[in-house]
Amino acid sequence: MSPKYISIPGIDLKPTEQLTIKPNVKKTNTTILSTGFDLGFKLVNNTGRNALIKQIILPIKEIRNSNYYLKLDFYELTDNKNDITSKKINGDSQFIPVASLQSGNNAISLDEKIALPKEGVLLSMRIIENIGKYSDRVTNPVIVFYHDKVFGNTYFYNSKHIWEEFKSNPKIAIGLVLLQ
């Protein structure tokens, strides 16, 4: 089956291709996400083309408490890839009941497709008790994620509302389903 091109005077449309980038899991190391803080992970665009993120794939080792929500947001990166702005690029935050997740790969369809430019984006995750109510109090661990085999850094949203590199903690494994 080959792509079918549709020609409209002045506009050429072609079907969207879907590309799945599987998570590169290192099962010997993990990161635990608890309530009380945001962790961020850079999602890099290695395709050489503009893309939209349709789904994220989160390989989870263990769910320790399912009475919470996983809050997802996406933030802009600057051109030099090392700077993260505080500019959120998705409209509303997405909330996933932790009870709907399980050990293994979890494909999470995004409520809105997120543009993945050359510079990439930062995926922010936070565990919350109730939608609309956030606590800075760190409590028991909720989700245990596997690390990525390729070294990448974790970022922490500090009290000054700045993303700061958390050098002692490698990036968790994250897969993507892209539309190009």
Rank of each mutant, 00 (worst) to 15 (best):
M1W: 06
S2P: 05
K4S: 14
I6A: 14
I6V: 14
P9Y: 12
P9N: 04
I11R: 15
D12A: 15
D12P: 00
T16A: 10
T16Y: 13
T16N: 14
T16V: 08
E17S: 00
I21Q: 00
K22L: 15
K22C: 01
K27N: 15
N29V: 11
N29I: 14
N29Y: 12
N29E: 12
N29P: 09
T31C: 00
I32A: 00
I32W: 00
L33D: 02
S34M: 12
T35W: 05
F37A: 03
L39C: 11
F41V: 06
L43T: 08
T47S: 10
T47I: 05
G48V: 07
N50W: 01
A51F: 01
L52A: 08
L52W: 14
I53E: 03
I53H: 13
I57D: 01
P59I: 02
P59S: 07
I60A: 01
I60E: 12
K61W: 07
E62F: 07
I63Y: 04
R64F: 13
R64C: 11
N65G: 15
Y68G: 08
Y69F: 15
L70T: 03
K71D: 13
D73M: 02
E76G: 03
L77K: 09
D79N: 05
N80K: 10
K81L: 13
D83M: 01
S86N: 09
N90F: 08
D92P: 09
I96K: 10
I96F: 11
P97W: 11
V98S: 09
A99H: 14
S100R: 13
S103W: 04
G104P: 07
G104T: 07
N105V: 14
A107S: 08
I108C: 04
S109Q: 13
L110W: 06
D111C: 03
I114F: 08
P117C: 02
P117R: 02
E119T: 12
V121F: 05
L122C: 00
L122H: 00
L123E: 02
R126E: 15
R126P: 10
I127C: 00
I127R: 00
I128L: 06
E129P: 10
E129A: 12
I131E: 07
G132N: 10
G132V: 06
G132Q: 02
K133M: 09
Y134E: 12
Y134N: 08
D136N: 08
D136V: 11
R137N: 13
T139S: 15
P141S: 12
P141D: 11
V142P: 05
I143M: 01
I143E: 06
H147P: 13
D148M: 01
K149Y: 01
K149Q: 01
G152Q: 07
G152C: 09
N153F: 01
Y157S: 02
S159P: 09
K160I: 00
K160N: 14
W163K: 04
E164V: 06
F166E: 03
K167W: 03
S168M: 04
N169W: 01
P170R: 07
P170Q: 01
P170N: 06
A173L: 02
A173E: 08
L176C: 09
L178R: 02
L178P: 00
